[in-house]
């Protein structure tokens, strides 16, 4: 489902070039559960952004569901993000003036789905995540765990094939963090391909496939499990 071939990405910081990703090769099948760990600055987020079509590699090729994404233009990439990819961020990124339901509704709205259909789908997702009684609450009226679950609901409302989570538990206490991870794993068990970037070895260890990044490259010494 996903194939990365010799992906490179570097940034200019001042007059120094920082190699955030060096010759990354990665293959994933549909339904995989992958965790990415590694020290801060090792390129985990950059890799996730490229997987999510938020960022473009300087060189290399990225195939998503058989399409070479590096050949798509900006609009086509936006549509691909909308229809196939869900994001979960460390800082939730909920729009503060909108209610939980309105936040979840955003991707449907961008996709031009009829309001009547939207209401039903939002209600179903809220139900599934146990947030039905929080539908009309604004983010500042929700706990951290609830906020992240609203964000997950938003990321999955379009029923994407790929769910990307960048340190989803980074801003949460242990209990809420576990809840969020369980929610993500539940979605994975229903077939969604899940990639989680994390600092927490305990959370990272739950994934069926684990990679460790060091200085922009995948650490070959790290034990890997599952297909690859």
């Amino acid at each position: 489902m996903i194939r990365l071939e010799r992906i490179n990405r570097s940034f200019m910081v001042g007059d120094e070039t920082v190699h955030a990703l060096r010759d990354i090769d990665l293959e994933m099948a549909a339904g995989d559960y992958l965790s990415i760990m590694g020290p801060s600055g090792s390129g985990k987020s950059t890799l996730l952004n490229i997987l999510g079509l938020l960022d473009q590699p300087d060189s290399g090729r990225y195939f998503l569901q058989g399409t070479e994404t590096t050949a798509l233009n900006e609009t086509e990439q936006a549509v691909a993000r909308r229809d196939h990819i869900g994001f979960v961020f460390q800082s939730f990124h909920l729009i503060p003036r909108l209610t939980a339901a309105q936040n979840i509704e955003l991707p449907l709205m961008l996709a031009g789905v009829e309001p009547a259909e939207r209401t039903g789908r939002v209600a179903a997702v809220l139900e599934q995540l146990g947030l039905s009684d929080r539908a009309r609450h604004r983010p500042d009226q929700l706990s951290g765990g609830q906020r992240q679950r609203v964000a997950i609901a938003r990321a999955t409302i379009m029923q994407p094939a790929l769910l990307l989570a960048d340190e989803p538990t980074g801003n949460l206490d242990k209990h809420s963090g576990d809840e969020v991870v369980q929610t993500l794993e539940q979605l994975n068990s229903r077939g969604i391909t899940l990639v989680v970037v994390t600092h927490d070895p305990e959370i990272g260890g739950r994934a069926s496939r684990r990679i460790r990044m060091v200085d922009g490259a995948i650490d070959p010494g790290h034990p890997m499990t599952g297909s690859g």
Partner: peptide, 16 residues
């Protein structure tokens, strides 16, 4: 800015 970034991540096109 963050909201705009989010809209883009959710698949909002430039024109939208």
């Amino acid at each position: 800015t963050a909201e705009i970034g989010l809209l883009k991540a959710l698949g909002g096109r430039r024109g939208e």
